[in-house]
Simulated assay, not measured.
Amino acid sequence: MAKFDTKMDRYPFVPITKRPTYDWPAGKRLAVYFALNIEAFEFGRNPGPDFTTMPAPPFHRGYAYRDFGNRVGVWRLIDLFQEFDIPLSVLANTAVYDAYPEVMAAFRQRGDEFVGHGRTNSERQIDMSEDEERAMLREVRDRFEKEEGAAPKGWLGPFISQSTRTPELLVEQGFGYMLDWFYDEQPQLFRTDLGPILSVPYPSMELNDLPAVFNRRVSDAEFADLLVDAFDQQLQDSEKYPLVFSVALHTFVMGQPHRTRNLRRALAHIASHRDKVWITTAGKIATHALSLPKGTLLSPDAAGSRASAAS
């Protein structure tokens, strides 16, 4: 019988039922954050499917569909989150500063968190050499620092794409946490050759509007139901251990009027439990997790030790 190598030396396997427990601020056990993707694409390069037919140059339908998000959809979503007094983790391409500066100003005025999300969603880290990726990360860090007065602490790669050296490069360039790996419902320390980086849960497949609506064909009402059901289940589970409930949205998807109306229902439900949960940002979750007593978060070195022992 063939034996498969399934070792992963970036983080250890420990069931959630056997970990140290802790609280979020004010004794809460469920942390809630919403990640809003603010993206810019280069016209003439494939921005992804237009969800009708296979895309072909000059890809104008896919570009126009996504451009709608920054022209119309984002403003509808800002109004909605303002109504419920919910902060946002804004996952932004730095090209947005040049193409849509009013959008970034609106989030700055709200006091939302900015998370590094590449230069543009027309490129992926996996397609870059190590030097190209390093230069891109440095450029993104420096642009945020210039525009916002501080470099972002968090990172999500365009297309949630990583190279084999991305975690090391993120540490090297001063990033403190990443969202690219969704393998848990608690923040986890992730091993790199330059010391650990924190992995904060991000709904890359499940509670992410883009794959849900267009890949899995979830209806608009069903997506709102998914948010409510997941929130209720995690709120119940959080009586046993601390958890993170996260939702990923795109302006050109959830900013459509019919979807915003359904999202309103889910936000109203979540906001009605504000006294029981910590509604916050990914950055504040990372800060709190890293402030916990030593040993509360699992050491990523245990993964490497177990892998070495098994080999």
Rank of each mutant, 00 (worst) to 15 (best):
M1A: 13
A2H: 09
A2D: 12
K3A: 07
K3L: 10
K3Q: 07
F4V: 15
F4S: 11
F4A: 13
D5M: 07
D5T: 12
D5V: 11
D5C: 10
T6S: 06
T6V: 15
K7P: 03
K7C: 12
M8P: 00
M8E: 09
D9W: 05
R10Y: 10
R10C: 10
R10D: 08
R10G: 06
R10S: 12
Y11F: 15
Y11W: 13
P12C: 03
P12H: 02
P12W: 01
P12R: 01
F13H: 09
F13Y: 14
V14Y: 01
P15T: 10
P15S: 09
P15N: 08
P15V: 04
P15I: 06
P15C: 04
I16T: 11
I16H: 02
T17D: 06
T17V: 04
T17S: 11
K18C: 09
K18G: 03
K18L: 13
K18V: 06
R19M: 14
R19G: 09
R19Q: 15
P20Q: 14
P20F: 03
P20I: 05
P20M: 08
P20H: 12
P20R: 13
P20N: 15
T21P: 02
T21F: 01
T21N: 15
T21H: 06
T21W: 00
T21D: 14
T21L: 03
T21R: 13
T21Q: 12
T21A: 10
Y22K: 06
Y22I: 07
D23N: 14
D23L: 08
D23G: 05
W24A: 12
W24G: 13
W24V: 14
W24E: 09
W24Q: 10
A26W: 01
A26S: 14
G27N: 07
G27W: 03
G27Q: 05
G27V: 10
G27R: 08
K28H: 15
K28M: 07
R29C: 05
R29Q: 14
L30E: 09
L30G: 12
L30C: 11
A31W: 04
V32G: 07
V32S: 03
Y33S: 06
Y33K: 04
Y33T: 05
Y33Q: 08
F34D: 01
F34P: 00
F34V: 10
A35L: 10
A35I: 06
A35R: 02
A35T: 12
A35Y: 00
L36H: 00
N37R: 01
N37W: 00
N37K: 00
N37V: 02
N37L: 00
I38M: 07
E39F: 01
E39T: 03
E39S: 02
